[in-house]
Design a protein around this nucleic acid. Structure first.
Lengths: 114, 114
DNA sequence: TGATTGGTTCACCATATGGAAAACTATAGA
DNA sequence: TCTATAGTTTTCCATATGGTGAACCAATCA
């Protein structure tokens, strides 16, 4: 059906869920084991593991297992990939192709909005 | 099942599809009517209209109908909302809470990647 | 008026997604 | 060794998603 090979597809899809975004926010602070990560959420572990699988297959996180505990880490570069696409689009919106100018633009308008 | 009320959910979900991202890229250049927008894609109009509905309900685009022609427009601010969330996350990743510093940071690392 | 164009609606289908419950594996600790 | 802990696998279910074809409505235009 959909060609899920495109990295942006999987990254944006991974971000389209509050549980997964919360996991990312948490992991940005420091790596953490699975059960620690799962604590704040109401769902069972199997459901939570599916979210982790989505995050991992999108490349937003990776994990390694030592003993019986699997520790998850963030992959900041993938976040940057998504941000980069959006920044490019906003650059077009601002009527420019120069990416640095676009960043300055987004920065500026964001300050005004707050 | 999922609480789709959160705007970020619907925005990221809308972005998680190459057809919809292409429509956004197209609309950033200028508004366009439905059939013009649909031209580049293989799918039938009903399927394409569903994509437009997803984009519209996410707030990324809006449209108005004059005569029998519906013209679609981009909503740049919604794109900025997604970019803003990502920028905040990357700010944490960079070990900072200052958003301007985070933008500078993302700008810097993106130049290095190319 | 009749035909075309632009869009819409409807019924339907296959697959994906997000969740639950239960049973299981393997490492750590007492 | 026994038991608790951390995670995994499997099966199952309801709903969402992305697509189709066919019928339909409403402006234009010849």
């Amino acid at each position: 059906m959909v060609n899920q090979s495109l990295p942006l597809d999987t990254v944006f899809h991974a971000l389209a869920d509050p549980t997964r975004r919360a996991v990312i926010s948490r992991l940005l602070k420091s790596p953490a084991p699975v059960t620690r990560l799962a604590e704040p959420f109401e769902m069972g572990l199997p459901a939570f593991l599916k979210h982790l699988a989505v995050l991992e297959s999108s490349g937003l996180i990776h994990s390694e297992k030592r003993g019986r505990v699997r520790t998850c880490h963030i992959n900041g570069e993938r976040l940057a990939a998504a941000e980069g696409w959006l920044a490019e689009q906003r650059a077009v919106w601002a009527g420019r192709t120069d990416r640095l100018a676009a960043f300055a633009e987004s920065q500026h308008s964001q300050e005004q909005e707050e």
